[in-house]
Design a protein around this nucleic acid. Structure first.
Lengths: 249, 249
DNA sequence: CGCTATTTTGAGCCGCGTCAATACGGGTGG
DNA sequence: CCACCCGTATTGACGCGGCTCAAAATAGCG
């Protein structure tokens, strides 16, 4: 192998947002090709992670923002009584760690739900680049602002039916934007995590999924989900259109 | 009056973050004196607003970030069935409108609860200045990130007791940071708004306040609130330390 | 094939919302 | 100064959505 091809190989391995199929969903969204190349130099790809591998834990010093490259991740906190509280599921192209900017320490734990990889973005380098690149600054602020909008959606007091319907529609939309089917997908997370995320009991999730199925809204078999009647599902969700963080629309 | 003194007068009127007692809580936090002066040139003070005056409404084009200078403001959305949903109360030094960055349109309504004033910050100018002033960029991102943390606090499924105790402690902390008493303050908002913000029924708020009073935690008379036992109040709040957006600690 | 984690199903109960009535307070006009 | 009125707040009775506890069914895995 020649040094030249070695370099090319290394550059590809080093990340190449410019060639990443997720670029239009991720941090490079809206950046020009040359701007994306400058971003490439910051990004460091991770070794493959496996289920239960943690990316960071609460109170870890905040140095890095993580972008999901493949797989599905979960972020959560643990309260004083040891109860887990799921705060989000993160699909490829989505960022994790943004809420740590304020405290300089992570405010959540982040863990892989299955095998996956991430891109690491050193925050100091990222902000330095952002001062030189107004579009990147804009993009970071837009992503922060979007997280706020999504959380605002979460705080509304929806019924269990609305929450679950909204969650399924949100997942559907996110998978669709990534080139997967909007109506058939595999749930990366157990019922327990879905229930916890939606602030419901696992039993409630099971019961409602069963009823949705009886009503012909969905066909569900363990982790395999099919949306049969998205229109009625949307009516059921009501205001909770996209109960699934972060939202892409 | 000489032109010089006219200019000085105008500059003071034009805002003077440099002289504002709220500077250490607001956007200028962490900026040097000369940096704050550059911010001064952007800021435009508002005419006094009265109760029920709106700053902006949902779907208004987003051009401006608002900083509360005096008074108390409420932000809320209205859902499809016409029900109001309170998303936050905003005290002096706090910013409103940050969640509109993503969509370029406002996602909430903002209204004065009593007589008050705000500072208007044109967003385009602000981001332009931020590219030249890394500390300002940092500060905006920190404030965005803090809003995320606060909302994360809100989404946890606390009991009604925890929510209300957390809300009172949050208000207490915010008043304290502004130089007011941490134990005696006047509620700027009616019970209905408190209940709505905490996702409770107004009747529930009344009942719990009555019980808190019977238990010696507080003394409350209409809008006048006194915290008698903050320690037990904190125990009651549990994880909901600061159920009041945005948080300052 | 047995072991364990996950999911489903059933029974009972409790926190909080809903509905309704009452009390309070601040403003207005006589 | 008092009578009246209306919005806000309180208090009580009752019902329901979703949680808890318990047990059975199913799937993944060594």
């Amino acid at each position: 192998m020649t040094p030249a091809s070695e370099n090319t190989g290394l550059a590809q391995l080093r990340s190449a947002c410019s060639r990443c199929s997720l670029a239009r969903l991720c941090l490079p969204m809206g950046l020009s090709e040359s701007q994306t190349c400058r971003l490439d130099n910051l990004v460091e790809p991770s070794a493959p992670l496996h289920a239960d591998d943690h990316l960071f834990r609460i109170d870890d010093p905040f140095t890095t923002i993580y972008a999901v490259r493949s797989g599905c991740f979960k972020s959560y906190v643990v309260d004083g009584e040891g109860r887990e509280q799921v705060l989000g599921f993160h699909l490829p192209g989505e960022l994790m760690g943004l809420d740590a900017i304020y405290t300089h320490r992570h405010r959540r734990n982040a863990v892989a739900l299955d095998t996956g990889t991430v891109c690491k973005l050193p925050y100091a380098d990222l902000t330095r680049l952002a001062t030189e690149m107004p579009q990147l600054q804009q993009q970071i602020m837009r992503l922060l602002s979007k997280d706020i909008s999504t959380l605002e959606n979460m705080v509304a007091d929806h019924t269990a039916d609305e929450r679950l319907a909204g969650f399924l529609l949100g997942l559907s939309s996110r998978y669709h934007h990534r080139g997967f089917s909007a109506t058939r997908f595999r749930l990366a997370m157990p019922r327990r995590d879905i229930a916890n995320y939606l602030r419901l009991a696992p039993e409630t999730v099971s019961r409602i999924l069963a009823r949705f199925q009886a009503d012909g809204l969905i066909a569900v078999e363990r982790r395999d989900m099919e949306l049969l009647d998205t229109e009625r599902l949307r009516q059921t969700a009501g205001e909770a259109h996209h109960l699934s963080a972060p939202v892409f629309d």
